[in-house]
Design a protein around this nucleic acid. Structure first.
Lengths: 244, 244
DNA sequence: CATCACGTATGGTCGGACCAAAGGCCGGTC
DNA sequence: GACCGGCCTTTGGTCCGACCATACGTGATG
């Protein structure tokens, strides 16, 4: 059986450093909140230069498991954290821009994720969460809301519902996927012929979605959010076609 | 309305460099396959040191939009690529290890994503894709397959079906999510009381899944894969509980 | 006891040097 | 003229040492 050969490509000390730190994470020796030794101490211990170590730390920082602050005191230094959202958002945004994913792919992913989010939210969301979502919807319904703010509020509404579903992973994915098409949606909204009417129509769906979630009607909410997303993305397809 | 204040935290030149390169990507000026100027040329153009530039490049490399090779010729230098899978896998693996996501979250995400994958695969998968998936199932059915290889084949089977669904995004997410729990599943399989029987039972489901996909019965396949995943994860929950 | 200036630890940046790999170039050889 | 081998150049990878910016500690000072 011809198992395909893999390029070995070892070396690159910063990757070895990375493996070393990752192992500590996988082994549970490094946990969220822990601090790493100062770069000037850790580098010689690992037997690498400070530059190589720093590149490894930068990698960890970009995937949202580490933050670094200069200065002194308990908040200074490199600390292990859990912040996957920014990292995932940036990743998907860039790859979407590079054409790794088509608009259709993003649409389907949003439908799948948000159906799940709304269904779970109908079961698990707390009253506080729903009240906060309500505030977003109310604000979106005010007539003086411009496109940019509407887009921002819409994003926050969908992400907030996902968060309140109780599933960190799907809500992170939902957020990242929604963020990846934010500029596209913004452009589409800006080109709407009758903006106030379009906003009102979109927000009527938000109101109904929230009502269904409050009533615990997860299945109905899932169906409606699917239709909600598909109709919005329907106006985007033409936009993206011109990129080809 | 009290819009929450965001920490401004500017500076950090490597982030500015990052923004500069990202802008070129978003503007479509940098596309997959393009080469960046050599570090020694680009750094002074951007007005930063080579170190700062390199840290920015390292970030791009870790999110899978850039690869760098030393040497000379058309393949050398820093090139824009589209390889989100490794990046996403590493990200989810680390965050899962750090406890950003519970096993329950991963389970639900897998169910949602793979339901969609199998449903789409029943509609779109080519015969070649299904034949390759079949080969994986056949190999998994042979009696001499050990746990490690089985786990590997199982991963590849699920990912392959996702790939053949025609949706790059959901297949990437499926792959990454499946990878994030690979060590856990491996441990669970290793502790199975009657390994040959367990393997046979799991693989019987694979066979049936593939049959349903071939027959175009997407809905049935989705239901079965949900049950397939839930039952397997059911054996994992006990495992992860001991981590608490 | 409060205040303020200085010291110090920490990450961030910079410049220069050298190493390793790999294609290209040039000369030699047949 | 074609082939082959060694040197050269380009390019990323690494290392070192220095300095900067920041923010907390600390101790002098009123």
């Amino acid at each position: 059986m011809p198992v395909e050969w893999q390029p070995v490509r070892q070396s690159r000390t910063h990757e070895l450093v990375l493996q070393s730190i990752e192992q500590r994470v996988f082994a549970g020796e490094l946990r969220a909140g822990d601090r790493l030794p100062p770069e000037r101490e850790l580098a010689p211990v690992l037997g690498v230069s400070r530059s190589a170590l720093r590149e490894a730390l930068r990698v960890l920082e970009t995937i949202g498991v580490l933050v670094a602050q200069p200065g002194r005191g308990p908040d200074a230094g490199a600390r292990i954290v859990r912040n996957p959202d920014d990292a995932l958002g940036r990743l998907l945004r860039l790859h979407f821009a590079l054409g790794s994913y088509s608009l259709h792919d993003v649409l389907e992913a949003r439908v799948v994720l948000e159906r799940s989010s709304f269904e779970a939210a109908a079961r698990h969301a707390s009253k506080e969460d729903l009240d906060k979502a309500e505030a977003l919807v109310v604000r979106m319904g005010e007539p003086d809301v411009e496109v940019v703010e509407f887009n921002d509020l819409d994003t926050r509404f969908h992400v907030h519902i996902a968060r309140s579903s109780g599933n960190e992973l799907t809500s992170t994915l939902t957020s990242a996927v929604r963020e990846s098409v934010r500029p596209l949606i913004l452009r589409a909204l800006e080109e709407a012929e009758d903006w106030p009417a379009a906003a009102a129509a979109l927000n009527a769906e938000h109101t109904e979605l929230l009502r269904l979630v409050r009533a615990g009607k997860g299945a109905k909410a899932a169906d409606l959010v699917e239709q909600h997303i598909r109709s919005l993305h329907g106006t985007l397809v033409d936009e993206s076609a011109e990129r080809l």
